[in-house]
Computed example of a mutant assay.
Amino acid sequence: MKIMNFSLMPYRHLDIPESHKHRSAWVVLPNTFYDPEKGANEYESFINLLAESEDLGFDGIGVNEHHQTAYGMMPAPNLIASALIQRTKKVKIAILGRALPLVNNPINIAEEFAMLDNLSRGRIICGFVRGIGAEYHASGVNPAFSHDRFHEAHDLIVKAWTTPGPFPWEGEHYNLNYVNLWPRVYQTPHPPIWIPSQGSIETIEWAAVPERRYPFLITFSARDSVIRNLTAYREQTKKYGYEADESQLGWAAPVYVADTEERAKEEARAGLESLFNDYLTLPVEMLLPPGYTSAASMKKMMGARAGIGMERQSLEKLIALGTVVVGTPKSVLEQIEQVREKTRFGTFVSMLQFGTLPDELARRNTELFAAEVMPELRKR
């Protein structure tokens, strides 16, 4: 099993009571809530926490992209990835993910990843996403074109990585006279592409196509939904005539480990409840704008989220649903293995800092997970 340490890099100094006077911590929250001095310190802290993962034995570290929100301070995850490249030597660096439909020229993304792939000498993993609904309010891109723009941007990027240039591109959404990537990617034929998702039917079918076989990473979902979606991906590969490899199946979840169950809950409570109730609150029209997804996928995604972003979530409810993994090393291992046994997933993306969780607890959590949970996961 491959194990990663992932961070959202939230703005932990958010005045949460005052932020509740606004509809959401996304898009409409005034940027006067952000203090640049405190924010600069936060970036330094988060980069330190992730860079330390290499010495702790993680296979990879992960960052991602969000816009105009206190939930995650990475509108340009390529910049964070570049900083991490300079702080590490061997660990993989996964950008989970880069929202393809939000850009007017996908070649910009192709170039970013090519540069990072060279700077890291082949340690980059690309996570391609459509971006959640709120990103379309922030960018002004019509969500009705989300799927089409994503697919065309993906095809253009992969061709730019693998086809000698210059060549022209004439598509529905992007038209370029010259595609001629400098620099070329370091990995052959290109960096690995992963697809983080919350279980869209269309995404599962698209990612599992034999010529792609992209790893499917289910995120922020209840345990039953994780099992159901990873099983759906495996069944889809069978329909395509092949058996999914374990490396094609992944699960991402917040994790907190302590020496007793009581201590784990006590220390994790504020961070996890702030993540799901304060940073992740989104009105439904912001989360799922008209045209963003099909009716069938919308119902499926709403079930997967189990109210996340739309109703308050207690720590006890999050644990019971299996949306988060909290406990002693033994119980955390058992919770992960419960999903592993039913899905045979091969990649676990652990979020070991979340919400308002301070550095001291995040570091202790990461070290205990690496020392007592990670080795056992690998053995099994």
Rank of each mutant, 00 (worst) to 15 (best):
Y186W: 12
Y186E: 10
Y186H: 13
Y186I: 01
Q187W: 05
T188G: 04
P189I: 01
P189V: 02
H190Q: 06
P191Q: 06
P192S: 09
P192N: 10
I193C: 04
W194I: 10
I195L: 12
P196Y: 12
S197P: 11
S197T: 12
Q198D: 07
Q198T: 07
Q198L: 08
G199W: 15
I201A: 10
I201Q: 14
I201W: 15
E202C: 08
E202Q: 15
T203Q: 13
T203D: 15
I204P: 07
E205Q: 15
E205M: 10
W206V: 02
A207Y: 08
A208E: 05
V209I: 09
P210R: 12
E211Y: 09
E211H: 13
R212T: 06
R212D: 10
R213D: 06
Y214P: 06
Y214G: 04
P215L: 09
F216W: 08
L217F: 09
I218D: 01
I218P: 00
T219V: 15
T219E: 15
F220W: 12
F220D: 10
S221G: 09
S221C: 08
S221E: 03
A222P: 00
A222I: 00
R223M: 11
R223G: 02
D224T: 01
D224A: 02
S225M: 03
S225E: 09
V226D: 00
V226R: 01
V226F: 06
I227P: 04
I227M: 03
R228M: 07
R228P: 00
R228L: 04
R228D: 13
N229I: 02
T231L: 09
A232T: 06
Y233P: 01
Y233E: 02
R234C: 04
R234P: 00
R234K: 14
R234Q: 12
E235H: 09
E235N: 14
E235C: 00
Q236N: 06
Q236L: 07
T237S: 08
T237I: 07
T237V: 03
K239I: 03
K239D: 06
K239N: 09
Y240Q: 02
Y240L: 01
G241M: 03
Y242T: 12
Y242C: 05
E243C: 00
E243V: 11
A244W: 07
